[in-house]
């Protein structure tokens, strides 16, 4: 791979090979393969139940998402059998659609843990600026997600991911159930992270709003556990907006190859 980058090719960050995933004995993803490159944003569309959340969770290594066959290669290393925390330490981060409430752990302490620091750590000036930008200063002393609004949860989720300085951000509907201000903030901060740190974002969304802030070239439609179509994000979104996912099924312009 080092050789590839010397040759001027972009390095592949994540490679998923022929991945089949079961959840509670039901096959959700059937033999999907794709490659994600560094410093890019990828958008994934698909109706509920098509397997988007399953794919993100399987990449993260969450139990209950059982890999039946296939491989997940991250930075050239087979991580298919690695635990969640091992993957996290390699640079994979996830932002959940519904993160849990954790009574007894303050948001400030969780942010410190994301930074790899203990309770006595004082945030740096830069970190304070980030916390302020995410409008979470008043939430630092509160238990994680307890009594947080939808927007507050998403902001806290993405702030944690940024503090982890990950190589890939797996984002499960970061734009659902939030106000316009939060959407703008979240979209721009993800874009900034990709641009500034060279990270890659894989974003599941149902909405087009976030595309105004994230400069993604690549998008796909997932249907019934398989990639159905690859095209530009705005084009796919417009089509879904007009004709729904049924429109995808009958679309004459379907592109079946992509993310390679």
């Amino acid at each position: 791979m080092a050789l590839q980058s010397l040759l001027g090719e972009e390095m592949s960050l994540l490679e998923v090979k022929d991945l089949t995933v079961k959840v509670e004995d039901k096959v959700i993803l059937s033999g999907i393969s794709f490659i994600l490159k560094e410093r890019e944003s990828y958008i994934m569309f698909g109706p509920n139940g098509s397997g988007k959340t399953t794919l993100l969770n399987a990449i993260m290594g969450m139990p209950h998402y059982e890999v039946v066959s296939g491989e997940i290669i991250f930075l050239g290393e087979d991580i298919t059998d690695k635990s969640v925390d091992e993957r996290a330490r390699l640079g994979i981060s996830i932002g959940f659609q519904h993160p849990p409430e954790i009574t007894g752990i303050k948001l400030a302490d969780l942010l410190r843990l994301c930074l790899g620091k203990d309770q006595n750590y004082d945030f740096s000036e830069e970190e304070w600026q980030l916390i302020k930008a995410f409008m979470l200063t008043d939430f630092l002393d509160r238990d994680v997600n307890v009594g947080f609004s939808g927007g507050e949860r998403k902001r806290a989720e993405i702030l944690q991911m940024i503090l982890l300085k990950p190589k890939i951000l797996l984002l499960d509907e970061p734009d659902s159930g939030i106000d316009v201000e939060s959407l703008k903030l979240i979209g721009s901060e993800i874009q900034r992270d990709v641009e500034n740190t060279g990270s890659t974002a894989l974003i599941v969304t149902h909405q087009g709003g976030i595309l105004n802030y994230i400069k993604a070239k690549h998008a796909c439609v997932l249907l019934a556990g398989r990639f159905y179509c690859f095209r530009g994000p705005k084009r796919i979104y417009k089509s879904i907006e007009a004709k729904g996912y049924e429109g995808c099924v009958n679309c004459p312009d379907r592109v079946i190859e992509g993310w390679t």
């Binding site: 969450m62 969640v84 925390d85 996290a88 330490r89 849990p100 954790i102 994301c114 944690q160």
Partner: peptide, 8 residues
């Protein structure tokens, strides 16, 4: 698991 995704 949530905390493990945060590298714990």
């Amino acid at each position: 698991l949530y905390l493990m995704t945060r590298r714990l």
